[in-house]
């Protein structure tokens, strides 16, 4: 294991972690307020498409990135209306979002680009400014420049969410809405308002996650770029016991295992690649079995408040 391999491990881990982290944070904020969000996959797909399309047409990846957040919020507003105002079964409307996100993205890709893969769009820049990456060239650290600026943003969001949820009265309201909405209601705080805010924020975050995949990991959108990451994020959120820092750790564990797999494959070894690929999933299962125990779901999660 050389230093350059370690650097590669770090870079790869962060690359796999970031989209999951965005989406898992989205899941956390939505579910803490009491709205289940199984639609992360669809939102990510739609975000990935929007980011690739906007970035391609405008030439500005930042615009694409934020458009993806907006698109995510727009799509999830359907879920919000259904589950908060119409008190729908949240599994059902979340499933609807998954199909709508996937369907609309692919249909629009075919409409705009006449193929099933969008053309190459400008990517998000590195987290390090040019004058720093300049020094990395041809050193063991040169791969560091491929850490995207959005990765930093994801970790800032972890802290931000942690701060808001556990250190401010706003956060207390959100947590209370997920645990005991009736109590919140009697204090004169509008339960639907809190939930709408949280669900829309969740859509935005998951949209960012999708954007990261299409304009930072790759530079184009096709129907397979998300490929189950929304569901992994969902698992990471549950695994992280519905907390931002827990979600971060589980996403990092997952990203790390993914990158290990990639590195091992390159080296070639005793274990055949397709068995090796199961490592992240087996590791997560093992971690669940060994350390986690009973999950701490918010009490009113998934239950409409009447």
């Amino acid at each position: 294991m050389t230093i350059s391999n370690l650097v590669l491990l770090l870079v790869g881990t962060l690359m796999y972690t970031t989209p999951l982290l965005f989406a898992a944070l989205g899941g956390v904020i939505s579910e803490l307020s009491g709205v289940m969000n199984i639609g992360l996959e669809g939102i990510m797909t739609f975000g990935a498409f929007t980011a690739a399309a906007v970035s391609f047409f405008s030439g500005n990846p930042f615009l694409g990135f934020f458009a993806a957040g907006l698109a995510g919020a727009l799509l999830i507003s359907l879920h919000a209306v259904a589950s908060i105002t119409f008190r729908a079964d949240q599994t059902i409307s979340g499933t609807a979002i998954n199909f709508l996100g996937a369907g609309i993205s692919v249909l629009l890709t075919k409409k705009f680009f006449h193929t099933s893969t969008s053309p190459s769009a400008p990517k998000l820049p590195s987290v390090f400014p040019k004058w720093i990456t300049h020094h990395f060239e041809r050193t063991t650290f040169q791969t560091l420049k491929s850490i995207s600026i959005a990765t930093l943003l994801a970790f800032i969001f972890v802290y931000l969410l942690y701060f808001i949820l556990y250190k401010t009265s706003w956060g207390l309201r959100i947590l209370a809405t997920g645990e005991h909405p009736a109590a919140v209601d009697t204090l004169g705080i509008s339960v639907p308002k809190v939930r709408y805010f949280c669900v829309l924020a969740s859509g935005m975050l998951a949209g960012f996650g999708g954007a990261f995949v299409s304009i930072s990991v790759t530079s184009s959108f096709s129907s397979i770029v998300i490929c189950g990451q929304g569901f992994i994020a969902l698992a990471a959120m549950i695994f992280g016991k519905w907390t931002p820092h827990g979600a971060m750790l589980s996403c990092l564990l997952f990203g790390f295992a993914r990158e290990c797999t990639t590195l091992f494959e390159k080296e070639g070894g005793l274990i055949p690649p397709s068995l090796l690929e199961t490592l992240p999933y087996i590791l997560t299962l093992m971690a669940l079995i060994l350390f986690v125990g009973k999950s701490a779901m918010p009490k009113a999660d998934g239950i409409p408040y009447i």
């Binding site: 189950g228 698992a235 055949p272 068995l275 999933y281 997560t284 079995i289 009973k294």
Partner: peptide, 30 residues
């Protein structure tokens, strides 16, 4: 079983098991 014995949410385990089954399939297939 994992839900019953250890209280692990069946959604997480099922998602993980899906992927494990997928790569197992590819392994056996090859």
């Amino acid at each position: 079983l994992l839900k019953v014995r250890l209280g692990i949410n069946e959604v997480v385990t099922s998602i993980m098991l899906n992927w494990i089954a997928f790569y197992l399939y590819r392994y056996i297939f090859a």
